[in-house]
Design a protein around this nucleic acid. Structure first.
Length: 468
RNA sequence: GGCUGGGUGGCAGAGUGGCCAUGCUGCAGACUGCAACUCUGUUUACGCCGGUUCGAUUCCGACCCCAGCCUCCA
């Protein structure tokens, strides 16, 4: 099965050919941890989570590295504000991030490196760049000398002239060139710092990723991912560092960038202050609904995030579960999609697999899920229904959906005890049998008022929790 | 100003040189004692102007509009 990826650098969709068929390597930039992650961070995590699931079904061995930036000026500022040590803040935020991502159905990466654990690798790389004439020391800082890199700008198609024209940054006086960026900067005594040949200090943001990629995945990797807002300057700078270090600007074979999640017409971002944290959203909606909402748009497109999107996602997801529920009458109780984690590629539904392998087309994959669900709804043959249900759940595994059991989905958080519900259902059945429809409807209304909706099927009455 | 992506029916959102996306919603029907679930049917599409073509929403060109990046950011 072929996978196609839109490569940001080449600006076209390309067939994915790994450096080593037996070991695929992917690195994704994770969030900087100084607060609760927002749903935009969640989007990136979910997108690459699905992508890695596809990679794992196609290739025997995949190493997925997603870093955590745990040293950064914002973390310092926040830690100072809260009066807690930097490492404690970073650790707490990382734990919280795991909790939030887990609720979104995001599996852990194989390696989750932290910048603070790679100071040695970082300084080694910086020293080499200085030796090679790509970096220089100035007033305790080490800066990357951009004009030394003939390929600078080639990732995001920027010319050096345009950058000067558009410069909005105040240029530090010690810079040789206005575009030079920091690899190492001095730390004052109250800030975290590490010893280095250039004095006590801390690494710049971009060099962290260069060093961690090299440490965990080697000098060349298959795929590098992240948000489109990271393409410039972060990835461009990273490419300059890693590319110059080994004289190999093509050390990343495919660059993937996810689009932005918009609140209103603007990108959700901490600096704009228009954020919704995953935690807040989880108070109102199941993580699976949020995940469905994220996957309802293509990853390279911006996603307009609002209540209507969540409401539509909730209804759409419910219809998939409803198909599973209906199928239980024919095919027996359904497992969750977790049970399909090891499904072989031949047993996975083409309706879902094909779109996902075509540059992660999740909207079409969801369409495929609904096609399967429709077929399942009308199937009366046990074998056929079981096969369709297996396909639906196999697709669910790829997408990270249908992770709850049918009964959990429909009956969790009921405001009335199950015994009481069943008693009322029995009473209603008796009333119906006696053709006392007024009484039957009264019971139904009574339950509905408590958020319990009733469905009569040929095999008897079932119930579910509904929103008031 | 430069560099990226986009502009599709009530909403969300794929896709294609000529035929059904899909989901949600609305409406109508079937099923049901009535509902719910499910099924069936159904309305309004491809920013604007040219060009290529037998035929363009889809290819090419101009224009308008939107978002992202050029500062920390997924």
């Amino acid at each position: 099965m072929d996978i196609h990826i839109y490569d940001t650098k080449r600006r076209k969709k390309r067939r994915f050919e790994p450096l080593d068929e037996n070991h695929v390597t992917i690195y994704v930039c994770g969030p900087t941890v100084y607060d609760r992650v927002h749903i935009g961070n969640g989007l990136s995590a979910v997108v690459f989570d699905v992508f890695v699931r596809i990679l794992r079904t196609v290739f025997p061995n995949v190493t997925y590295v997603r870093n955590v930036t745990d040293i950064d000026d914002k973390i310092n500022a926040r830690a100072l504000e809260l009066g807690v040590p930097i490492d404690e803040l970073a650790r707490e935020c990382t734990d919280a991030m795991h909790e939030d991502f887990d609720a979104l159905g995001v599996l852990l990466p194989d390696v989750e490196p932290k910048a603070t654990g790679h100071i040695k690798e970082i300084t080694t790389m910086i020293s080499s760049l200085i030796q090679q004439g790509h970096a220089y020391e100035a007033e305790g800082h080490v800066l990357f000398y951009v004009p030394s890199d003939p390929n600078y700008g080639s990732l995001t198609n920027k010319s050096l002239k345009d950058l000067i024209d558009g410069a909005r940054v105040e240029v530090a006086p010690y810079k040789r060139d206005p575009k030079d960026f920091v690899l190492w900067k001095p730390s004052s005594p109250e800030l975290p710092g590490w010893k280095s040949p250039w004095g006590r200090g801390r690494p710049g943001w971009h060099i962290e990723c260069s060093a961690m990629i090299r440490e965990h995945l080697g000098d060349e990797i298959d795929i590098h991912g992240g948000g489109t807002d990271l393409a410039f300057p972060h990835h461009e700078n990273e490419m300059a560092q890693s590319g110059c270090f080994n004289d190999n600007p093509d050390y990343v074979k495919y660059w993937m960038h996810n689009g932005m999640l918009n609140l209103g017409s603007q990108k959700m971002s901490k600096s704009l202050g228009n954020i919704q944290t995953v935690q807040e959203l989880l108070h109102e909606h199941p993580g699976e609904t949020l995940r469905y909402a994220i996957l309802s748009g293509h990853y390279r497109q911006n996603l307009k995030w609002d209540d209507e999107l969540i409401a539509q996602s909730d209804r759409s997801l419910t219809s998939l579960y409803q198909a599973l529920r209906n199928a239980e009458r024919v095919a027996g109780e359904s497992p969750t999609s977790e049970a399909y984690a090891q499904t072989k590629i031949a047993d996975l539904p083409d309706e879902v697999l094909a779109p996902l392998s075509d540059d992660l087309n999740t909207p079409r994959a969801l369409a495929g899920m609904h096609e399967l669900a429709s077929k399942l709804n009308v199937s009366t043959d046990v074998k056929e229904a079981q096969s369709l249900r297996d396909k639906l759940l196999g697709g669910g595994w790829l997408l990270g959906l249908l992770t709850r059991s049918v009964s959990e989905f429909f009956t969790q958080d009921a405001s009335v005890g199950e015994v009481e519900i069943n008693r009322l259902i029995d009473e209603r059945a008796e009333a119906k049998a006696a053709k006392q429809y007024d009484r039957a409807d009264e019971i139904r209304a009574e339950l509905r008022a408590k958020g319990i909706a009733i469905e009569d099927t040929r095999e008897g009455t079932v119930w579910k929790v509904v929103k008031q």
